[in-house]
């Protein structure tokens, strides 16, 4: 009967929606129960976030600019990227307490590229602590794509990273955060 079919349809749809939402609701809190390598990488990421928050607050003018903080936090993030980071994602370390997406292991080279770029750009950021131009200096305008090219977060070349190291802290930090954001978009569960 038509009505029955519709009803069962609704029941099914709502049940499925409920099921689909369950892991979503828990993903955010997942880290609380993490152990081993999952907890280790979650802790490292938390520290990187705290270091980024301090720099971000300085860039936004919420707190006074302190070159020493920029230098040490940049160095810490640089040290946390690259192989330090990727070593914490061994094959098979997916779990319900982890925010890592399977895409990490399906596309390992891209994941490594992001971790590597995190390290390099953070190192460049650290070097901008000696920038003399003042915080108010306008960073070079990021490339506006004319025409409508899809904007994949392209990996930065070594020359571009070198230019970031010689420029204002604001531009280097923006490049760093964009790297974090692109990696999280590709490889972390939505929060």
């Amino acid at each position: 009967m038509q009505l029955e079919r519709l009803l069962s349809h609704w029941v099914g749809a709502l049940a499925l929606t409920g099921l689909a939402l369950m892991p979503m609701a828990s993903a955010h809190e997942a880290h609380k129960h993490a152990t081993g390598v999952v907890a280790e990488r979650a802790d490292l990421m938390k520290e990187v976030g705290e270091a980024s928050k301090q720099i971000g607050d300085m860039m936004k003018g919420k707190t006074p600019f302190e070159p020493a903080v920029l230098r040490s936090n940049g160095a810490f993030i640089a040290k946390s990227g690259g192989s330090t980071l990727t070593a914490l994602f061994p094959a098979g370390s997916q779990s319900s307490t982890s925010d890592a997406l399977p895409a990490i292991w399906e596309d390992w080279p891209s994941f490594e590229d992001y971790a590597d770029q995190m390290s390099k750009v953070a190192k460049a950021l650290s070097a901008t602590a000696d920038w003399q131009g003042g915080l108010s200096a306008t960073p070079p305008e990021s490339k506006q794509v004319l025409g409508l090219a899809p904007v994949a977060p392209a990996p930065l070349s070594d020359a571009e990273i070198k230019a970031l190291a010689a420029g204002p802290p604001s531009a280097a930090f923006e490049a760093l955060v964009k790297t974090c954001n692109a990696c999280h978009t590709a490889f972390r569960k939505p929060r």
Partner: peptide, 19 residues
């Protein structure tokens, strides 16, 4: 940039919107 006030980079669909 995708940076939240807590220092997290958003990711997810909003990460795509930012990029």
């Amino acid at each position: 940039t995708g940076l939240t006030p807590e220092g997290d980079a958003m990711g997810g669909s909003m990460g795509e919107v930012v990029t």
